[in-house]
C-alpha cells in the first residue's frame, strides 16, 4: 500500500471538516445535548431507573450510537459524492492508486470524524449525567467498528447517489428511524412481547445493546449477537464495495 495517496485523501477530508467546523462538529454536539436536556433532564427525571441505571445515563450510549451512525453515513457519503458531483473524481480514478487505498482514505477520514464526535459527545454527556464505563475496551471496539462499518455504508451511498436528495434518503428515512426504534431511548423489555420480537429484526438493536453493555453491563441481546451483527454489516459493506470497484458501478463507464 502506498501511504502518500491515502494520506492525501485523508488529510483533504479532515481539512474539509476543519473548514466546516460548525456543521461537522458543533451542530451534532448541540443537537445531542438537546436530547440530554429534553429526554435526560426534563422527561427523564419522571422516569424510573432502567436496570439500575438512571434514565439520563441509560440513553447516553443510544444517543452516541444515533450520532455515530448518522454522522458516519453522512460524512462518508458526502466525501465521495462531492468529487463525483463536481467532476474532480477524474483525478482519483486516474491516479496510480488501488481501490483499497481510496477506501482507506475516504472511509478512514469519515470514521475518524465520527469517532472524534462520539468522544466529544461522551465528554459532553458527563456534564449532564453521572457516567460509568464498565468495559472501556469493548466500548472503544464498538465505537470504532460501528464508525468504520457505517462509513463504509456511507461510501456506498455516496457512489450510488446521483443527487443530493438520494444522499439524504438513507440517513433520514432508514438510519434515523431504525436507531430511534432500536432501543436508543428505551429497553426493548419495556415493549409488549409481540413488538419485542419485531424489534429483534432491527439490526441497530444489536449495536445499541452491545454498546450499552460496554457502559453498564446491561443489554437487550447477548454480547455475541451484537458482535456478530456488527461483523456481518462490516463484511457485507466490504463485499459491496469490492463489487463496486470490480464492476466500476457508477464510477467508470
Amino acid at each position: 500500500m502506498n501511504l502518500y495517496p491515502v494520506r492525501a485523501i485523508y488529510m483533504a477530508e479532515m481539512a474539509r471538516t476543519r473548514r466546516t467546523l460548525l456543521q461537522s462538529v458543533v451542530s451534532p454536539v448541540i443537537s445531542t445535548s438537546l436530547y440530554f436536556v429534553v429526554f435526560g433532564a426534563a422527561i427523564g427525571s419522571r422516569i424510573s431507573e432502567i436496570g439500575g441505571v438512571s434514565y439520563g445515563a441509560f440513553i447516553v450510549p443510544g444517543l452516541i450510537m444515533l450520532m455515530l451512525l448518522t454522522q458516519s453515513v453522512s460524512n462518508a457519503s458526502f466525501g465521495i459524492f462531492f468529487p463525483k458531483f463536481s467532476g474532480s473524481i477524474y483525478e482519483i480514478l486516474s491516479a496510480p492508486i488501488s481501490y483499497l487505498e481510496i477506501v482507506v482514505g475516504y472511509v478512514g477520514a469519515a470514521a475518524s470524524k465520527s469517532i472524534l464526535l462520539g468522544l466529544i459527545i461522551l465528554g459532553t454527556s458527563s456534564f449532564f449525567v453521572p457516567l460509568e464505563i464498565a468495559h472501556p475496551f469493548w466500548m472503544l471496539t464498538f465505537l470504532v467498528l460501528t464508525a468504520v462499518t457505517f462509513s463504509l455504508l456511507g461510501f456506498i451511498i455516496g457512489i450510488w447517489a446521483d443527487g443530493f436528495d438520494k444522499l439524504q434518503l438513507v440517513p433520514l428515512l432508514v438510519i434515523t428511524p431504525l436507531t430511534f426504534l432500536g432501543g436508543s431511548f428505551y429497553s426493548i423489555d419495556m415493549l409488549p412481547p409481540f413488538w419485542q420480537s419485531v424489534t429483534l429484526a432491527n439490526p441497530v438493536v444489536y449495536l445499541v445493546s452491545g454498546f450499552r453493555w460496554s457502559f453498564y453491563g446491561i443489554s437487550d441481546v447477548s454480547l455475541g449477537a451484537s458482535v456478530a451483527m456488527i461483523l456481518f454489516f462490516l463484511a457485507a459493506s466490504l463485499a459491496t464495495i469490492a463489487w463496486i470497484f470490480r464492476t466500476g458501478y457508477r464510477l467508470k463507464p
Binding site: A8, S86, P96
Partner: peptide
C-alpha cells in the same frame, strides 16, 4: 491529465489542491 471541464474543489486553495494532486499520485 488536464480534463476538458473546469472541475475542481471550489473551497480549496491553489497550493493545497496542487499539493493534494502530488500526494494522490504517490509522490512525497
Amino acid at each position: 491529465l488536464v480534463p476538458q471541464e473546469l472541475t475542481n474543489e471550489a473551497f480549496e486553495t491553489v497550493w493545497n489542491t496542487v499539493s493534494f494532486s502530488r500526494g494522490l499520485f504517490g509522490k512525497s
